[in-house]
């Protein structure tokens, strides 16, 4: 029942883009089971998902619903045990080898022995770019996240919010069309989080990238997304897919509007229903 709903909603959103060139993620009946000492854990169960170019898709759900696992399968950090998934028309492994995405982790995960500029340079060095190209990309992406002037600082000299911005610049420096973000602002306080949400919205609007964003905050998901995937746990599955047709360019004030509150309400209902199902 829920799977059909999810597929309906997904095809509804992607209805205008039948052309495969616009399809960034395509997952069908994706399953992932971890074998543990307490028996198998179904982290993902029959997940169907489509993401089109330029979308901002949030995965939302309680802990253990598989939202991070799904993101890690897309990034080829985990392997699905059943089902099919393609990223940019390739297998996740091919996409990873072609550096098709940038990944932002829950923590900034900056290397403490490298300066901010050095951290942004890390993927560029691995890609084998020459020095001039590296310098150009470092400057451009640090400016994009408002960190110009902090090139020579070390990560531990910066605040948590600035560190996370640097890690976003590092992911952007690879110049991927797809940005995967795993609760990037989860460890930050409310004020910094609001501010970074606004900046991320502007960044997405300006660069026209596809973003997949994992969160467990409803306002964050509604504020940022064009599509919200509501997930529920045990087994991890897609409960509902909610379209979020707010204007592309958003300010924090939008959170007071009826449209926003209506969508937030639907997300909350979806989360609650997912839980009720679990309690039975």
């Amino acid at each position: 029942m829920t799977d059909i709903q999810a597929t309906d909603a997904a095809s509804g959103a992607g209805g205008t883009a039948e052309d495969d060139a616009f399809r960034v993620i395509e997952a069908r009946e994706l399953c992932l089971t971890f074998e543990t000492n307490d028996g198998p854990v179904h982290a993902l169960s029959n997940v169907d998902l489509t993401v089109d170019r330029g979308e901002f898709v949030s995965f939302i759900g309680p802990s253990g619903c598989g939202k991070t696992t799904l993101l890690r399968v897309i990034a080829d950090l985990e392997k699905a045990t059943a089902g099919t998934i393609s990223v940019n028309g390739m297998s996740p492994e091919e996409a990873r080898r072609k550096r098709a995405y940038g990944y932002v982790f829950q923590a900034a995960a900056l290397y403490p022995w490298r300066t901010i500029a050095g951290n942004v340079a890390l993927p560029l060095e691995i890609m084998g770019l020459d020095k001039a190209e590296r310098a150009e990309r470092i400057a451009r992406n640090l400016e994009l996240v408002n960190l110009s002037g902090f090139e020579r600082k070390f990560p531990w000299q910066l605040s948590g919010g600035m560190q996370q911005r640097a890690s976003i610049a590092r992911a952007l420096a690879v110049e991927p069309d797809l940005l995967l973000m795993d609760e990037p602002f989860g460890a930050l306080d409310e004020i910094v989080r609001d501010h970074l949400n606004e900046q991320l919205n502007q960044l997405w609007d300006r660069t026209n990238k596809t973003v997949i964003f994992v969160t467990h905050s409803i306002p964050e998901a509604v504020f940022l997304s064009t599509k919200i995937v509501v997930m529920s746990p045990r087994p991890g599955r897609v409960h509902d897919v909610i379209d979020c047709n707010l204007p592309r360019e958003r300010t924090l004030d939008i959170r007071e509007t009826p449209e926003f509150l209506e969508i937030a309400h639907r997300v909350r209902d979806g989360l609650r229903a997912g839980h009720a199902y679990d309690d039975e």
Binding site: L77, Y101, A109, Y111, P123, E125
Partner: peptide, 26 residues
């Protein structure tokens, strides 16, 4: 080195020697 740091190198499709030199040995 932490699992997250090694995952990071994996997302960059870094080779064994790149991960060794730029992360694990440091």
């Amino acid at each position: 080195s932490s699992a997250m740091q090694r995952d990071l190198m994996r997302t960059y499709a870094a080779s064994y020697s790149q991960t060794l030199l730029k992360l694990r040995l440091v």
